[in-house]
Design a protein around this nucleic acid. Structure first.
Lengths: 302, 302
DNA sequence: GTTATTGTTCAAAAAATAAGAACTATAAGT
DNA sequence: ACTTATAGTTCTTATTTTTTGAACAATAAC
């Protein structure tokens, strides 16, 4: 039972004026069209077309069915075409999950810039450092700043960040500025981001790698707050450059032990579900983000 | 490509919340539903549902398609149900082809009586003694007063009429009242209906059948006019009783040679096209007509 | 770590549909 | 009135589409 094809066939018969002509126009044989019509009438339990060898007349029901069919066929076509257009249109909403600080400080700027070009798009950004389930949360994409784990999501790297170790000039003046990793062990405290590792990983001049653990002055799940604390001299901050770059440029924080840090570079990815047909606007936004941050993002130090 | 079934399947998936449940509700297996959904997405070139092992989320296009689908499914069901209702409803129009005199004098009364019971029905009656093509003319039914010829139409007898030979008392006084068919041959003239036979057919007392031909006083295609002429004494009238019954009851015409007429009874049929599904109102009207005229129609003489 | 549930994929079976030929009916041409 | 041509139906056979059922992969839930 294919109601739409029945409608299309019936409309063709009515407009062509004969089953034979309708069959030609539908690129099929008259027997198929004849059978379709009689099956349709049987299903509806109604005579649509009174037919003799060479003349046709629409019954009242036939007229009604014809008119409704015209409308339905058009509506269905519009709906299906509309979906594709929607797919290509740079409009509608994009729902994004982003880490707190990166989202507020950097992603927001990029999104605003994108929005200037494509004002029809409405962003719905959820700032949260916790790992969210894209599918369950209904997100179109998520920003993740970390090495990738296995998942059924697609990832594209949009930029990268570099970890730096820094402290306020005042703090360094009081506690001394360490020049080797080993010197951290004495008289230093760290500002601890709740998700990151307790130990800091260094590579010494001789190529030996070393794990250093120093006491924690304060733990928080908010990178900005830790930054404030570092500026106030509460302790050492081990932080991605996109968080502390401005404070460093302003001289409020000083980088230390730069050359000893192991694996300081962390990729920034955009993740999205494995959709067979990716919406055009999503692809467009990802391309935009890659271009926006580029090889020299604003948080780059030197 | 069955768009409506695709829509129904998709709606079921969305509302059931999972492909497996949707399959159960649709009395099929999950593989069929899964395949239908992926084929649909492929055809539309759009992801409707972002799905992982246990969670589903509608994409924007999915939401749009879901809502449109709901509406279209309902509309199509309404249209199809509407046709059946239309079929059973005693409303709408009935187009009838009827012979002139019978139509004006007798059918019209029956139709008005029917209309009193079913005022929603609008009659469209075409009065014409010529044989019309029901299909070409778009007629629902036709009245035919004659022995049936072969045709692809369905016939039901609704009543019958009897042919009588009559003349005005004044005419018979002048020309003499014939008591045997043979006596017609002298001094008589006939009023000729254009479609009827030139010869009159009789059965004599001895069982011998005989064809009599007498001169024509006047020919017309209008039975009422011939009746008027007969009353005025222009000639003999060979006529169905539904035309002359009142004049005979009023004594304006006298029946002659009644017992000699061969095959005086002519059936009155209602004809309609061979529709696989006859509309309820048409069947109803035919039943009404048979009941209305019954075995003793108003034109019956004794 | 194990089990249970969900969705996908695949080959085979079943159902629906189309094709092609034969047939009926009738309009048009002669 | 006869022949020819055209339109529609019906039937059997092909073809296409859809469904099934099983095996599999992925991942929540226990």
């Amino acid at each position: 039972m294919n109601q739409i094809e029945d409608m299309q066939t019936f409309v063709r018969i009515v407009e062509a004026g004969s089953i034979t002509k309708a069959a030609e126009q539908l690129n099929t044989v008259k027997s198929a069209v004849s059978r379709r019509l009689s099956q349709l009438e049987k299903r509806l339990g109604v005579t649509l077309l009174t037919r003799s060898t060479r003349a046709h007349t629409l019954t009242e029901q036939g007229k009604s069915y014809y008119q409704h069919s015209l409308r339905i066929i058009e509506e269905v076509a519009d709906i299906e075409a509309g979906l594709t257009q929607q797919n290509y249109a740079l409009s509608g909403s994009i729902r994004i999950a982003a880490p707190l600080v990166f989202g507020l400080e950097h992603l927001s700027q990029a999104l605003l810039a994108f929005n200037e070009r494509h004002p029809e798009i409405v962003f719905d950004v959820d700032f949260d450092d916790r790992k969210v389930d894209l599918v369950e949360g209904g997100f179109d994409l998520a920003i993740r700043i970390a090495k990738l784990e296995d998942s059924n999501l697609i990832a594209r790297q949009i930029s990268s960040t570099r970890m730096v170790l820094c402290a306020s000039p005042a703090y360094l003046k009081t506690q001394g500025t360490p020049t080797t990793p080993q010197q951290l062990s004495t008289r230093h405290k760290k500002l601890q981001y709740y998700r990151s590792l307790e130990n800091w990983h260094f590579v010494e001049d001789n190529g030996q790698s070393v794990n250093i653990k120093i006491p924690t002055a304060l733990t928080s799940n908010n990178g900005s707050f830790l930054l404030e604390c570092a500026i106030k001299g509460t302790g050492l901050l081990y932080s991605p450059d996109f968080i502390c770059h401005q404070a460093i440029k302003d001289g409020k924080l000083t980088i230390i032990l730069k050359k000893y840090l192991a694996n300081p570079t962390i990729p920034i990815y955009v993740l999205y579900p494995q959709n067979r047909h990716q919406s055009h606007k999503i692809r467009h936004l990802i391309d935009f983000l890659i271009e926006y941050y580029g090889d020299t993002p604003s948080w780059l130090i030197d």
